[in-house]
């Protein structure tokens, strides 16, 4: 663990921190997280569009990718975490969803593109609760909807021939029962 950490993290540390590391002050494990658990404390994240955002520690805690990093290095308040796969717009949406305690009503306000981008971001940041929440929102879009609605919503091309589709309808009576109004 320590060896792996040293080799990959060293790149990211500032000069002063590198020195600390050399002096053997690097703390590995949960103890080093303690400093980040203070109420109201913020962590700086820089997004793909170059915006530096100060995010509350309670939200950053859900980002396992950042937690892994904090847990493995001796970072301080001035440290800026790059999250180059996530735009500031999406990060703001994520913050809102976490603060709103994952309310399905909030998810309904998101556009299809936002849903997808948040899902990709949640996957990248390793935010398990958010990932499951958005995946469920997408599953809800699919549920009880006509195939035409699903294709249209996700931009999926219908690659069945007319004959194949007629055959599907004929042999698949269930599939077309109980469909919600689009």
């Amino acid at each position: 663990m320590a060896e792996r950490g040293e080799s990959s993290e060293a790149v990211m540390l500032k000069k002063t921190e590198e020195e600390k590391l050399r002096k053997g002050k690097m703390i590995v494990g949960d103890e080093s997280k303690a400093g980040y658990e203070e109420e109201g404390k913020k962590v700086k994240l820089v997004t793909s569009d170059g915006v530096t955002m100060e995010v509350e520690i309670s939200i950053v805690k859900e980002m396992e990718i950042i937690q892994t990093f904090i847990g493995a290095t001796d970072t301080d308040d001035s440290f800026i975490f790059p999250i180059s796969n996530v735009s500031s717009h999406i990060l703001n949406q994520i913050i809102e969803l976490v603060k709103g305690e994952y309310d399905q009503e909030l998810a309904k306000k998101l556009s299809h593109d936002e849903l997808k981008e948040i899902l990709v971001a949640a996957n990248y940041l390793n935010m398990k609760t958010l990932f499951h929440f958005i995946a469920t929102a997408i599953a809800n879009v699919i549920q009880n909807k006509s195939v035409e609605f699903v294709r249209d919503f996700f931009g999926i091309v219908n690659d069945f021939t007319e004959e194949e589709e007629a055959e599907l309808r004929k042999t698949n009576a269930w599939a077309f029962e109980g469909v919600d109004e689009d």
């Binding site: 999926i156 690659d159 069945f160 599939a175 077309f176």
Partner: peptide, 10 residues
């Protein structure tokens, strides 16, 4: 929902 989903695309 699977039978319906099977009709979306190949």
């Amino acid at each position: 929902n699977f039978p319906a989903m099977g009709g979306v695309c190949k």
